[in-house]
Design a protein around this nucleic acid. Structure first.
Lengths: 235, 235
DNA sequence: TGAATAGTGTCTGTCAGACAGTATTTT
DNA sequence: AAAATACTGTCTGACAGACACTATTCA
C-alpha cells in the first residue's frame, strides 16, 4: 500500500538583479542533453544531507561565482509535472534570489555559458522576440518568479536588496521602475519611503554627481523594517 | 558530477473549515510508525503519473471521504529538512485547502482515526494546552498554512470558499472573525464587501430566522472577483 | 414589548495621486 | 546661464475606523 516511488529533487533559481535600469535574470547555457544548447535557469540536484534552501544557496554560490552572496533568497514554489524532465521524474523546488549588480558570471562546469538577460526580452514581445526559448518549464518559473518580486516590492522593503549600500533614493526608485515597468511618482515615492519607519536610515553624506550635473543625492542604508503597511501601490 | 540521489515525494494537506465559529483543521491519527498514535496532517506519496496538485486532490478525496470536494486547493510550500522523516528522505509539498463545513470524516486505511480540531487548541495556549503535539514538522506546516489563509482573506475573496451557497453576509463575516480571531466592524465590513465589484452577488431571497429571533439576512452567491483592492484590513 | 439579529448613515482622519514649485550641481 | 538631477509643498479625492441609528423577526 504505502509505496514511495523514487524521484530526483532539484532546485532551480531565478536570480534577479538590476542592470542598466532593467530587471535582469541569470541564465546558463546547457552543455548536456536534454536541451543542450538551450538557456535555462541555474540549478541542480539536492544532496542527501541538505535541504532545498541549502542546495539553493550552494548553487547560487557556484553559478554566480560569488562566495558571500549579498542578497536575498526565498522559496518560490515546487514544479512537479510528471513530464517536465524527459529523462526521469524530477521535482524542482524553485527559488527566487535578488542581488545588487553582480559581476559578469563565468560558465560553471555544467554550463557552456552564463550571462544576464533582460527579463522583458525573454517574456515580452510578439513571439518572445529578442530572447531564446527556455529549457524545461523554466519560462513558467520565470513568469511566476517575476510576479513574486513585483508583488513583494509592494508590501516589503525587499527593493533595498537590489542596491548596494549606501544607496540613494533615486537609485531605489529606479529599482521600482525596473521591476514594475513604470516609475512611481517622485514625490509620492519619497513620502512613502521616508514615512515608513525603518525602511531606510539616512547617512550624513551625499553621493557623487553624474557627468551631466545635477544635485547630489543623500545616501541611505537599509533599515530594520521588513514590511510596508499600508503597501506601496503599483501603477 | 550530476548525481541525483533518490527521494520520496509526498504531499501534506492543511484542510481548513469553520466549525462552531472557529477555524478547524482536519487531522488523522497515525496507525503506523513513525509517530504511530500521533496526530498528523493528512497526506501521502505522489504517484509516478501525477503531479503534486493531483496527488493533493486525490488525498483530499480519500481522506475527507468527499468525492466532489467543494472548496479551494493551492500549494503552500515545500518542506525538505533531511531529518524530517526518520525512516528515509522525504520531501513534502504542503498544500492548503478550504471548504465549507464538511461531514465528519471517517478513518481511512492509513489512519486509525480522523477528526476536526480547532486550530487555536493546537497552536495557542501556554503549552499547546488543549491539543496534541503533531507528528513530523506538521506543526510548522500548520502555522504557515494558517498564516497563508489569514493573509489571503485580506486581498482575495477566498473567504467565500468557507461558506456554502447561498450564504448571508453575517455568515461571511463570521468567517473573518474565526480566521482573524476578531470580527471586522459590521458596517465597514458590509461597505467593503458590497463595494467590491463581484465579491458577492445578491439573490432576492432571505435566509431563515434563528430561534432567538432577529431580522432575516439577505442571501448571496459568490461573484466572479478574486482580488480585493485595496485589501480588507486585518484588525 | 424586549431581546436578538440585520442593516444604514455619517463624521473624521489618514493617505495616495497629481502636479507645481524650489535647490544644487556640472558644462 | 542652461541643463540635469534632487528635493519639497500642497490640493484633492478615496477610503478605513469608529460608532450611532434604524429595521425586522421571535418569544
Amino acid at each position: 500500500m504505502s509505496e514511495h516511488p523514487p524521484f530526483a529533487v532539484a532546485v532551480d533559481l531565478a536570480v534577479f538583479t538590476i542592470r542598466d535600469g532593467a530587471l535582469a535574470v541569470l541564465l546558463v547555457e546547457r552543455r548536456e542533453e536534454p536541451f543542450a544548447g538551450s538557456w535555462a535557469l541555474p540549478g541542480g540536484f539536492v544532496e542527501p544531507d541538505e535541504d532545498a534552501e541549502q542546495a539553493a544557496w550552494r548553487e547560487l554560490r557556484e553559478e554566480t561565482g560569488v562566495e558571500r552572496f549579498p542578497g536575498h533568497l526565498e522559496q518560490l514554489r515546487t514544479y512537479s509535472a510528471p513530464d517536465r524532465d524527459p529523462r526521469m521524474r524530477v521535482v524542482s523546488v524553485a527559488h527566487v534570489a535578488l542581488a545588487p549588480d553582480l559581476p559578469e558570471p563565468r560558465a560553471g562546469t555544467d554550463a557552456a555559458d552564463a550571462r544576464w538577460w533582460v527579463v522583458d526580452d525573454l517574456l515580452e514581445g510578439p513571439d518572445d522576440a529578442d530572447g531564446p526559448a527556455l529549457a524545461f518549464d523554466h519560462r513558467q518559473i520565470l513568469v511566476d518568479a517575476r510576479e513574486r518580486v513585483r508583488a513583494k516590492l509592494e508590501y516589503t522593503t525587499l527593493a533595498t536588496e537590489f542596491v548596494a549600500e549606501p544607496f540613494t533614493l533615486p537609485e531605489l526608485r529606479r529599482v521600482y521602475a525596473a521591476v514594475w515597468g513604470t516609475p512611481p511618482d517622485l514625490g509620492n515615492f519619497r513620502r512613502k519611503v521616508l514615512g515608513t519607519d525603518g525602511f531606510v536610515v539616512p547617512t550624513d553624506t551625499r553621493g557623487h554627481a553624474t557627468e551631466a550635473g545635477g544635485r547630489r543625492a543623500l545616501l541611505y542604508r537599509r533599515g530594520d523594517a521588513t514590511l510596508i503597511s499600508p503597501p506601496m501601490t503599483r501603477g
